[in-house]
Each structure stands twice: as C-alpha cells, then as structure tokens.
C-alpha cells in the first residue's frame, strides 16, 4: 500500500471515525495525463461514511474531507473524488 494512500486513510480515520472507508488509487487510469506522477498515487477515489455527515449538505461534506486532506491536496494528490455519506444513506 502506498504511503500517500496510508496518510489519507489515517487522516480521514482520525478526523471522522468513519463507519465505512474505501480508498482506491485510481492513478493508473490517468497515467501520462497532466498531474499524474511517476509511481502513481496522484488520483484517488474515496468513499467515506461517517456520522459527522448527517444533516450536512454535499458541498460542506466534501469541504470537510478536503480540509482534512489539505496537505495532500496541496502536494502530491492531483485529484480526489469524494463520496461522503451519512450512515444509512447508501
């Protein structure tokens, strides 16, 4: 498992205590594309389910995730696709 994926998982776990967390490194689908890095770990898909998202609009949910991962997004992570759910939503 890549170091960046692990950092994403640790930070999201600490910030949200998710009831479900799936992180997929989607970098290979973007190889050669602007923003893709040697060795991958530039594009991720995150599905996170956490009580913190209940009653929170979509934009705010995604912003919470982005804020938790600000360091990664400012650095190596070029794209982060986020699906943020409250328990029971999906």
């Amino acid at each position: 498992m890549g170091a960046i994926l692990e950092a994403i998982r640790d930070k999201l776990t600490a910030a949200f205590e998710p009831t479900r967390l799936e992180i997929v490194d989607d970098s290979s689908r973007h190889a050669g594309h602007a923003g893709a890095r040697e060795g991958g770990e530039s594009h991720f898909n995150v599905t996170i389910e956490a009580p913190a998202f209940a009653g929170t609009p979509r934009v705010a949910r995604q912003r919470m995730v982005y804020h938790a991962l600000a360091e990664e997004l400012a650095g190596p992570v070029h794209a982060l696709s986020v699906k943020a759910l409250a328990p029971g939503e999906g």
Partner: peptide, 12 residues
C-alpha cells in the same frame, strides 16, 4: 452560488 465540483454535479 457554488454548486460543487465534478462529483457533486454528477451526483445531482
């Protein structure tokens, strides 16, 4: 008003 990025637009 800010609607969102690709994920939110696609979901909506």
């Amino acid at each position: 008003e800010f609607v969102g990025g690709c994920d939110i637009v696609r979901e909506m």
